[in-house]
Nucleic acid binder design. Structure first.
Length: 656
DNA sequence: GACTGGACCGCCCTCTGCTGGAGATGC
DNA sequence: AGCATCTCCAGCAGAGGGCGGTCCAGTC
């Protein structure tokens, strides 16, 4: 019989990387020792991406592997057909499973390194009994059943001498209830294979009906506490593994040692024995500084070096030094050679470390394995979950050393210090306008709000112009700001507001739509009617009187008192006129507006309105109380106001 | 047994970008 | 005065780089 040479499952990236560099090897290796092998030579990143993107899943689900075994010594022909079937995720929690292998111990050895057409090993072993085993060792990383959910295959043999009489192998990993079910018509029909701690499954073949061509594989749990014929995990497994039963000699001269706990094999006894120690808890080497124990002296020495700060591996290109050579190699790749062996098959990303590629691939697949226990958030790596948890705890570990404001993230604090306490604070100038914004992200918002193309037409409020950019619309509308858009058809009067024009038109039409209900007197504007009503018909109305401190004369309006005081020499209201206080200014503005309003009416020829307006605040003043100079001033005021001159400016004019 | 290097997990950091509240400003 | 809009700002998440440390298998 051919020598056993089963690919070790754990040699993942190393081997695959080599293959990746040698694509010419092809998928199908030449048969060795009478064994036909097919390997998938895709790189790990390709495998990862393919499985997670669904393409791999498709291939798994659609393809049926049919392998024709190379003739053995007896020139027998074996055909194995693999089929895949969906497992419901709740049925079998196999999210972490990545590597599937089946080892049928007695009859045919099958190692499926990946559920697909490319990775199948068949190997004939010594026939011992009808009871046959297959083990499905499922390891992490390559086979996420969260998405793929594969597991059914039928192994068909034709004329398999070693496996019994012309039998067919059928392995059915049924999807129901998280169990893997044996095919019908068997003496035993075990429902086993729940997920184990080691994620290891045994598939036990049972002899089928003698008349049947099928040999049925029962998949059972490797959690041997549930298996009478299997020792418990850990120490017991190791003891079993050490048994000579596991150190079988194949037909060739070469001896291969198989671990029954995992898929490890080695041609060297020393390696095998060392490996078996990994299945025990034996850690005889104690660190006297922290009492931590290690399996080997090398591990202990590296650990002690972390205590002592001893870093024997120094970088030739910089002054960094490391405890282990592996760290130095990684550092060199990161900092100096920039070699990135782990390439994403879905984008241009490449990384120095496999774990980084694995993390990156999640950004394609959307996988979020780290679930927050307090909300629905789930992250793609542990750090983000940890950072997220601060939103629940309220923790703010970062403090500004200047103002002691605390922040949840260091980056936020950094921006804060830069913007609040920095000297040469960077600003971001909008490329489309003069706006300068403190933060780049806010500039982006600005661009989006003001400069983004709008498919819908943005219409000007004042004219028919339309725009597709908000900023252009705003700029355009500003051109209308001081525009006297409303022009009188009967005279040269123009104004900015429609309501002003409406009132003005009445000076031409003579219309007076506001009638006093008490005396039937009519007015062109509502406010004139209101003033009239207050003055003549409201008993509670108390007019404000501005009295001259020198002569005692009263005025209904401050502005009139002001003018009077200039003649009288009392200086009344002068201080107020020149006052800078906010309330004083506001009062002056109010008064001035009233005066302006009344004088506007006068300028428009409405003497009645002017009279009303001029007397709203106090005792009645005859029209002649407005001196010519004042009339001229008010006429000028009217024009100035329409021209946008501020009340402050008008007050200054009045003061002069 | 020692050395070596790959694999893996974990931690921390930076950069980036989006979001929504607050206050300022304009209409 | 009220509303709409804009900028400032902190909060928060996505993505990725780099290193510390441990474990393990191949090799000498």
């Amino acid at each position: 019989m051919a020598a056993t040479e089963i690919s070790v499952l754990s040699e993942q990236f190393t081997k695959i990387k080599e293959l990746e560099l040698m694509p010419e090897k092809g998928l199908k290796e030449e048969e060795k020792d009478g064994v036909c092998r097919e390997k998938d030579h895709r790189s790990p990143s390709e495998l990862e991406a393919e499985r997670t993107s669904g393409a791999f899943q498709d291939s798994v689900l659609e393809e049926e592997v049919e392998l024709v075994l190379a003739p053995s010594e007896e020139s027998e022909k074996h055909i194995l057909t693999l089929q895949t079937v969906h497992f419901t995720s709740e049925a079998v929690e196999l999210q972490d499973m990545s590597l599937l292998s089946i080892q049928q111990q007695e009859g045919v050895q099958v190692v499926v390194q990946q559920p697909g057409p490319g990775l199948l090993w068949l190997e004939e072993g010594p026939r011992q009994s009808l009871q046959q085993y297959a083990a499905i060792g499922i390891q992490q990383e390559l086979y996420s059943l969260q998405e793929i959910e594969v597991l059914q295959f039928h192994a068909l043999e034709e004329n398999v001498m070693v496996a019994s009489e012309d039998s067919k192998l059928a392995v059915s990993l049924a999807e129901t209830a998280g169990l893997i079910k044996v095919e019908e018509g068997q003496e035993k029909n075990q429902l086993l294979a729940e997920r184990t701690k080691e994620q290891l499954f045994f598939v036990e073949t049972m002899s089928g009906d003698e008349r049947s061509d099928e040999i049925v594989l029962t998949v059972s749990n490797s959690n041997v506490e549930e298996q009478e014929d299997q020792p418990t995990a850990g120490q017991a497994d190791a003891e079993k593994a050490r048994s000579t039963k596991n150190q079988r000699k194949t037909k060739g001269a070469k001896q291969t040692f198989h671990c029954d706990v995992c898929m490890f094999t080695s041609s060297r006894m020393s390696s095998f024995n060392r490996h078996m120690k990994t299945h025990t808890n034996e850690k005889p080497h104690l660190c006297h500084l922290c009492l931590k124990t290690f399996r080997t002296v090398t591990l202990l020495r590296n650990h002690v070096n972390t205590h002592t700060g001893t870093r024997p591996y120094k970088c030739n290109d910089c002054n960094m030094a490391f405890v282990t050579s592996g760290e130095l190699v990684r550092h060199t790749r990161y900092k100096h050679t920039h070699e990135k062996p782990f390439k994403c098959s879905m984008c241009k990303y490449a990384s120095v470390e496999a774990s980084k590629l694995k993390r990156h691939v999640r950004s394609h697949t959307g996988e979020r394995p780290f679930q927050c226990c307090q909300c629905s958030y789930a992250s793609r790596d542990t750090y983000k979950l940890k950072r997220h948890m601060r939103t629940h705890s309220g923790e703010k570990p970062y403090e500004c050393h200047i103002c002691h404001t605390r922040f949840t993230q260091s980056g936020t604090m950094k921006i804060h210090i830069l913007q609040k306490h920095g000297e040469n604070v960077p600003k971001y100038q909008c490329p489309h306008c003069a706006t300068i914004i403190a933060r780049k992200s806010d500039l982006r918002v600005h661009m989006r709000n003001l400069h983004a193309y709008s498919a819908a037409e943005l219409k000007c409020r004042y004219c028919p112009a339309v725009f597709h950019e908000r900023y252009a619309l705003i700029q355009h509308q500003k051109t209308h700001k001081n525009e006297k858009r409303f022009k009188c058809k009967h005279c040269s009067y123009a104004c900015k507001q429609e309501r002003h024009m409406t009132a003005h038109i009445r000076t031409h039409t003579g219309e007076k739509p506001f009638t006093c209900l008490s005396c039937n007197k009519c007015f062109r504007q509502k406010q004139l009617l209101n003033a009239h009503f207050r003055k003549y018909h409201d008993a509670n109305f108390v007019p404000t009187v501005y009295k001259c401190s020198k002569c005692g004369k009263g005025f209904s309006r401050w502005i009139n008192l002001h003018r009077h005081s200039e003649k009288c020499g009392s200086g009344e209201a002068k201080s107020a006129a020149s006052g800078k206080g906010r309330r004083t200014r506001k009062r002056k503005q109010t008064i001035l507006k009233e005066a302006t309003k009344g004088q506007k009416e006068a300028a428009n020829g409405d003497e009645a309105a002017a009279e009303e307006a001029s007397t709203t605040k106090g005792e009645q003043f005859p029209g002649e109380m407005f001196p010519v100079a004042c009339r001229e001033t008010t006429a000028r005021v009217k024009e100035e106001v329409d021209e946008g001159v501020t009340c402050e400016m008008l007050l200054n004019m009045m003061d002069k």
